[in-house]
Design a protein around this nucleic acid. Structure first.
Lengths: 120, 120
DNA sequence: TTTGTAGATTGATGAGCGTCGATCTGCCAG
DNA sequence: CTGGCAGATCGACGCTCATCAATCTACAAA
């Protein structure tokens, strides 16, 4: 399970002590850090099979879906489903809209855009 | 922050009692479930800013990077970094190779492929 | 063989997560 | 006004997580 890739020029102390050139900085731009925090937030929200499937269902239906349609799809209680939807909402992935008794959820367009772009 | 999307035809009990047509099944294929579990595993591993930045650094360098190069990039202890690398390895995102004292990490090609495809 | 170094492991700690039953809040139908 | 329903919230339960200091394990240099 080994992949053939070039090895970077490195400078551990033992090499540095021998007078070899110092390591290239491998500087990590600070701009990236904010993006990383945001993308990690989205990834974390997707890091649960049920939440990922919830997003999948919402995306596939390309519309606002009633919670009462979602409950029977999963083997979890209604409060647990509500908890997952809340997490997805907190991560800015979905949003909801109440109409009378029912609540309709939908995926926020472009919510997954940044992470998707980084992954590809 | 509301988005204009079509609302699915739904059938909560109150409507069903009134004799309206039953809800469309909204069936969720079981095949998707295995994929969801696998993709959620990857997303979960990326759901930490440090791990996401680790993967970012490894991907940008497109080669095997020594751990001693990674440690100074983050404000965490060496054991914590080792812990994160272990998590990434467990998720099948990266792999490592020892050469003497040093350990070299690299991103496994296509490890993020499935999640990336689903997101786009 | 002894010393030092890179990196992994261990154990502990405090915070967060997923889950549930029970309860609460609005809203609609009689 | 009352009864019932959809969905959110609460409180509690185990479990997992990120983190660190301390330790352990290989390996290399002297």
């Amino acid at each position: 399970m080994s992949v053939d890739l070039p090895v970077l020029e490195l400078t551990p102390k033992t090499k540095r002590a021998a007078g070899e050139p110092c390591c290239e900085p491998v500087v990590y731009p600070d701009v990236q850090r904010d993006h990383a925090i945001r993308m990690a937030e989205v990834a974390k929200a997707l890091g649960d099979p049920i939440r990922l499937q919830l997003v999948d269902v919402l995306r596939k239906h390309a519309g606002k879906v009633c919670v009462c349609e979602l409950v029977p799809l999963f083997d979890i209680s209604q409060p647990t489903l509500s908890h997952h939807l809340k997490k997805l909402r907190a991560a800015g992935i979905v949003d909801s809209e109440r109409q009378g008794l029912w609540a309709y959820y939908y995926v926020i367009p472009d919510a997954l855009k940044e992470l998707s772009a980084w992954l590809s």
